[in-house]
Design a protein around this nucleic acid. Structure first.
Lengths: 166, 166
DNA sequence: GTCTATACCCGGATAGAC
DNA sequence: GTCTATCCGGGTATAGAC
């Protein structure tokens, strides 16, 4: 089908992103790995933004799936969130450090990713957003290597979960 | 003194950063605003990284100052944190989205910025880091315009403070 | 559907004249 | 201490031949 090459381009873009970060994801590099020159890639993919939308959608879907797989309590949700994010740091950052392209994302994807945490918060949206922000803050500071060198991240996560459990 | 031009370059870099974001901060643009060409700027400043270190130091100092000015309880600290960050979004992001250049920062600066929150957490480092992460998560998601359009951020901050107060 | 060539940007930083 | 000229690199994307 016509989308085969798009799928392949997204897969290659993801490999580059996960391996070497956002600066490594260029249309030239993607094309190279597909065995063609950059201009040829434009016969299959309209632009780079389209590839990023696909990557963001994949990130949301996989993170949501990871959260739906576990027990559903805040402790295990926090663990699943941190585990997925640290396993896919650049993908996580891509999906959280900029506005979502909501009009180009599959309908309901954002809500599905948020559902497990919302459920764990008894349907309280504000509390769920605060808890999400807490997990996101911990993850993003960890990914950015921004905590002091001596910080005990496991203990910080424990304190976070304790605050939202009490 | 010899540092005058460095100070001026830092000030100009900050103006550019705060006005138009990180992509607007180039050695060419800084030099232009100082009435010279980029190569001349290198007679006063060794490289761009040096300017960024100064900006990060300024951000930490000012944010710390903002936190030291208020009542010291978690509610007012959260308000001060959010207020400073949203007033200086690009500076805040510069100072939090990458590892700190600790070896080039004034001694004690990081600890001074963290002190008010640590005090509000009764000296519990892990709890203080979790609380910091919560505030950072809320701020960074707000600055990135990453919350759903209908999200009530004030309420989310309220839920965050409530979780860490209870 | 691929290619080469190119257009158009941008960046940090250096050499060497004055 | 300023300049011009330049080096190096990068990027997205298009035109037009084949």
């Amino acid at each position: 089908m016509a989308e085969d090459r798009v799928t392949q381009a997204v897969a290659v873009a993801r490999e580059l992103l996960e391996a070497d970060g956002p600066d490594a994801v260029s249309m030239r590099a993607i094309a190279d790995r597909m065995g063609m020159r950059a201009p040829s890639l434009y016969k299959h993919v309209p632009d780079k933004a389209t590839l990023e939308v696909h990557l963001i959608a994949a990130a949301l879907a996989e993170l949501g799936q990871a959260l739906r797989t576990d027990r559903g309590d805040l402790t295990s949700l926090a663990g699943a969130y941190r585990a997925w994010a640290t396993a896919h740091p650049h993908l996580y950052t891509l999906a959280t450090a900029q506005p979502l392209p909501r009009d180009r994302l599959p309908e309901g994807l954002e809500d599905e990713a948020a559902a497990p945490l919302l459920a764990a918060c008894g349907g309280d949206q504000d509390r769920a957003r605060a808890a999400w922000a807490g997990a996101h803050g911990l993850v993003s500071l960890e990914l950015a290597d921004r905590f002091p060198p001596d910080a005990d991240l496991d203990a910080a996560w424990g304190a976070f979960v304790a605050a939202f459990s009490g």
